[in-house]
Write a protein that binds this DNA or RNA. Structure first.
Lengths: 356, 356
DNA sequence: GCCGCAGGTGTTAGCGCGATCAATCGTTGG
DNA sequence: CCAACGATTGATCGCGCTAACACCTGCGGC
């Protein structure tokens, strides 16, 4: 048996036994001191913690997971980090877990929009401490599987009225309603909606309709984009709107990027914004306040949604009850020049004025 | 019975023994069939794989890690996903590992810019299969520690000439040089640089200087922003430049967001772009081609950098040698109207023309 | 026949920790 | 002083897998 005492070689990692010996207690007491300190006498705790510090001991999460049947990983499903709101939310969750013993583990999502049953099944051997899913969990089979895992589940950006467990979201319906009310309140009567077709878009659209209805207005046209995410998509969507709803005096785009495209195309076509057509976006991306004219948009607190989601999960993981289990982020309308009066209220004419 | 483990939590998970029994072999043979199939007779392999399928067996990565001393996690350090380029790169890496047995694990980065020694030490018990770090690993202690772990290390977005192990990057020096050459070639002679102070910014600036030098031009002013990331920072930076370098005829911003701010402020101050001042950005974010005037920028293939980094790591993890160990992404100048002739070549006047 | 060798498979053991239950300690009241 | 009890601490074992080694088979060469 080769056993090296050399200090310069690949020295063996410190284990609970080593700490136990230094502290003059048994291994299990070290384990308890670190996991359930309230079950250890204060004096003992102190000695153990001192020994931990002295030996630079770090718990081996792998061995811990195998024995306890629970890992310290929070499995995260995110369809794409190229979506800025998703990326910001994930960063929020990361920040929430900073300093805790939990880490975020990215699961492969596959190509489909829906979270596939097999993807959840693949989680089982890992025994994640919690699961975070972007978007609602639609299929009943997947919901049952998730519940069966017996761990906290967080649905992010989900519109579901009946979450699997916990949910954090900026309610799209409310966002849409704020825009509808705003547009109708400004006297707009022929309103088009441009956006994708997912459940969040549906809520947003429903909200828009409800907001408009307060003033007796109905959406005049709905342009559903299958995969519309680019500025170019917004540009061509504006053309579609102007062709199919000639008297249109307001367009609500499902994202700020689309809205920016719409404004650019309007500029090209000499359509006055907001004079002829008011334009509103969704998401309040960093550039929204700086387009010309400044883009009216809905702020959805993306970072906060992820941050709060992380905090809720962490609370549950630490044994604290979380109530209520649904958290809705503040959704605020940022009314800017693209829909109403303001420094650039008359669109291009304002640019001229600035340029003198 | 595929779902038996989920519906009533009582049922035990499938283990190697179960598969072994079905296949009529020993547990170790099952393990070998899955990890090193070339060491198993084809006929046996077939029988085992059939049994795996029949039992819906999934390897328990936790137990595997504990025994083998090597996990299937790739530890990732990213300072912030709010940086779009970083988020895109991470998505690239995620896509590269899709379908493999490896998963990305997000490590807490702490507040400091540099990767702290303790953060790497904290990895030790986890035995990650590989490590991915955003930015170069500067400190010698951290470098030694990383090497000591004996796993593949990937430095992303690092300018280092002497990587710890592997490196994937869009060379900032080259990007800067392209801009310098471009600006000087257009006759610009009084060039300012606005950007942050990190190592990548240094390379970019060095590249700019080299590119300008080809035409005998030197940077006329360097504005170092400690934490400049917002449009507003770009706006105020333009004011600084115009005050301290009155004859300035070109500004290179370290990011497109800063550049957008600069252009907006120029518009407010009736500074003609590119007539009076040419403006170039860096990163070629999605809006760069759609500002007015369109923003000249440097495309850095952010998604590809992460994707390729993931592929290189995966190759090494699968035992294939990776050579060369440094991959430099294509860096291309997207020359647009903000620096040169084109549809909006005369800045505001072009807007007027479009507006008729 | 016998050895040597290599490819294929099995046996044993233990990775490091914590669930479980047993043992011990300290305190209180009679 | 001792019993009774709760509060601490300890001994044992196994979580599921695979490294290390043992063994077994078949084959070629002498």
């Amino acid at each position: 048996m080769v056993f090296s005492w050399s200090t310069n070689g690949a020295s063996r990692a410190i284990r609970v036994d080593d700490v136990a010996r230094v502290a003059g207690v048994s291994a299990i007491t070290v384990s308890r001191a670190l996991r359930t300190p309230e079950k250890v006498r204060p004096l003992t705790l102190e000695r153990v913690l001192a020994a931990v510090k002295a030996t630079s001991y770090q718990v081996n999460p792998i061995a811990s997971s195998l024995r306890s049947g629970r890992s310290s990983f929070v499995s995260v499903f995110v369809s794409s980090l190229r979506n800025e709101h998703f990326a910001n939310a994930v960063q929020g969750a990361l920040d929430a877990f900073e300093g805790s013993r939990f880490r975020l583990l990215f699961e492969h999502t596959g190509s489909g929009e829906e979270l596939a049953v097999e993807r959840v099944q693949a989680l089982q051997p890992l025994r994640p401490a919690a699961i975070m899913v972007t978007g609602a969990v639609g299929s009943v089979a997947t919901r049952d599987l998730l519940r069966g895992l017996g761990v906290p589940v967080m649905e992010l950006w989900a519109e579901s009225a009946d979450p699997v467990d916990m949910l954090a979201n900026a309610p799209a319906h409310e966002g849409g309603r704020l825009v509808g009310r705003h547009l109708a309140g400004l006297g707009r009567r022929s309103v088009a909606y441009v956006g994708s077709t997912g459940p969040r878009a549906q809520s947003r659209l429903k909200g828009l309709a409800d907001g408009l209805a307060e003033s007796g207005v109905q959406p005049g046209l709905i342009v559903a984009l299958e995969k519309g995410r680019l500025i170019e998509d917004g540009m061509s969507a504006l053309d579609v709107v102007m062709e199919r709803l000639p008297g249109c005096d307001a367009i609500f785009f499902g994202s700020d990027v689309l809205a920016a495209g719409g404004m650019l195309r309007a500029l090209e076509r000499s359509i006055d914004i907001p004079g002829q057509v008011a334009i509103a976006g969704y998401g309040d991306l960093y550039f929204a306040g700086h387009t010309l004219p400044a883009l009216t948009s809905v702020n959805i607190s993306d970072y906060q949604v992820g941050r709060r989601a992380g905090e809720m999960l962490l609370a549950r993981l630490n044994g604290r009850p979380v109530d209520p289990r649904v958290w809705l982020a503040p959704v605020t309308l940022k009314a800017r020049a693209s829909t109403e009066g303001g420094p650039h209220s008359r669109g291009l004419e304002a640019l001229l004025a600035v340029a003198k």
